[in-house]
């Protein structure tokens, strides 16, 4: 299918991108790797009138470590996370989750900032950043602000990001205990039917595709902190959630999967 027509602007810098967003208003969208946006445009589910291409901002493609933090430029591609020796050392979870996104061709183009801005509850990396207790740095006309991942996601494909803001950097803590990511799907290339990310030996637990946003499983985290076994903690994984019904899973089955996968992830992360 063919996307609707749009005007195209190339951003020379983050400042330029933000100025272009301000200039074109609500109908403008940032284009990074495009692997979330372009499929939606092909179905004409998204019809932005202006695309601001930030894909050439190579100064936002980096992975830096220091002071116990990994700082990742927003335009860093999934395959760069996957293959980065620095990432494997400082935050192997994010590298491993990046390697599970889509397929290799998708990972060559998709970016960390793009997937966070898209805020798809079925995506892998947003949940991982959430479990890791990450921070998202967003730049707008008035400067930069830091947003805790826990405060970032607000609904289906919605975040606190303003229309004239762009993500410039993502920060996650380095190191930090046992981790695991469980991705359950029917085909390897597909989005997770349910996914569970565990970081920090169970201190951070998040769920993929269990609601309208990536969800921090605070009940599970509390149970682990309180000394519960993995099985006990996992039992509350779906409590209070309203998971979606779709072709692959209804809410009942999703809730069951969330419990099973949470127990597996906690076990793999070292929670007995």
């Amino acid at each position: 299918m063919i996307p609707a027509a749009f005007d195209y602007e190339v951003a020379e810098s983050a400042d330029h991108a933000i100025a272009l967003l301000a200039q074109h208003g609500d109908d403008a969208k940032l284009l990074a790797g495009g692997h979330s946006l372009i499929p939606m445009m092909r179905y004409r589910l998204a019809t932005p009138s202006v695309l601001v291409d930030v894909g050439r901002l190579d100064d936002l493609r980096y992975i830096r470590t220091g002071n116990g933090t990994v700082s990742i430029g927003a335009l860093t591609r999934h395959s760069e996370l996957e293959h980065s020796a620095e990432m494997a050392e400082a935050c192997p979870m994010l590298a491993s989750v990046a390697a599970l996104v889509g397929d290799p061709a998708v990972r060559h183009r998709g970016t960390l900032g793009g997937t966070l801005a898209h805020s798809d509850p079925a995506s892998d990396l947003p949940a991982a950043v959430l479990a890791l207790g990450g921070t998202i740095v967003a730049q707008g006309p008035g400067g930069s602000r830091e947003i805790a991942a826990t405060d970032f996601f607000t609904g289906y494909f919605e975040s606190v990001l303003a229309a004239d803001e762009m993500i410039t950097e993502v920060r996650v803590p380095a190191g930090g205990g046992g981790w695991n990511y469980q991705k359950f799907n029917r085909r390897a290339q597909d989005w997770a039917i349910v996914g569970v990310a565990v970081a920090g030996g169970g201190a951070g637990v998040s769920l993929v595709n269990m609601g309208s946003t990536p969800i921090r499983a605070s009940g599970v985290e509390a149970a682990v902190a309180g000394g519960a076994s993995a099985a006990e903690a996992a039992a509350v994984a779906a409590d209070g959630l309203e998971p979606p019904d779709d072709l692959n899973a209804d809410a009942e089955y999703r809730s069951h999967l969330a419990r099973v996968l949470t127990e597996r992830a906690l076990n793999a992360a070292g929670v007995a």
């Binding site: 029917r186 085909r187 390897a188 290339q189 597909d190 072709l247």
Partner: peptide, 11 residues
């Protein structure tokens, strides 16, 4: 082909 699940080599 995202919803109609033609299997890949991985399956």
């Amino acid at each position: 082909l995202a919803d109609y699940l033609v299997p890949s080599a991985a399956e």
